[in-house]
Amino acid sequence: MKRNRLTRGALLTAAALTIFLVEMMIPPIVPIPGVKLGLANIITLVAMMLIGPVDTLLILLARILLGGMFSGQIMSILYSFSGGILCYLTMLLLRKHIALSQIWAMSIVGAIAHNIGQIAMAILVTRTWELILYLPVLMVSGILTGLFTGLAAQAAAVKLKGKL
């Protein structure tokens, strides 16, 4: 049982990490810091719905840390972490009120939370209050990208249900 759990976690972390690193190679579409698809969140969403909050948190943290190291962007760990944790917390709250067919909604809320966390960290780091001006744009992008990754996660979760 224990070995099973470890294997599952490692598998999901590897998947998340792969998606994360592949996504990093896609150049940003819009010149606004923080706008990205956030495909790695698919794994977080699936894990949250099918496995449980503790394992999800471990997978998320491992992905952020390793992702930062593998890409050589130690700085980005800070941004990913603040966004990732905030995203995780909202998912934790919503978890019980979400049906499997509503993962897309949780994904959107998570994406928005992620962007808020990231921009807050960026404001702290650069000490530039004006970055808050990017928040509405990030909300729009959060809703759109969140919907996209959410639907992808939903498809995955339906298929994987009971098999993890």
Binding site: M75, S76, A122, T128, E130, L133, Y134
Partner: peptide
Amino acid sequence: ATPIVCLP
């Protein structure tokens, strides 16, 4: 009013 930012 929106600044140019290089977060990295």
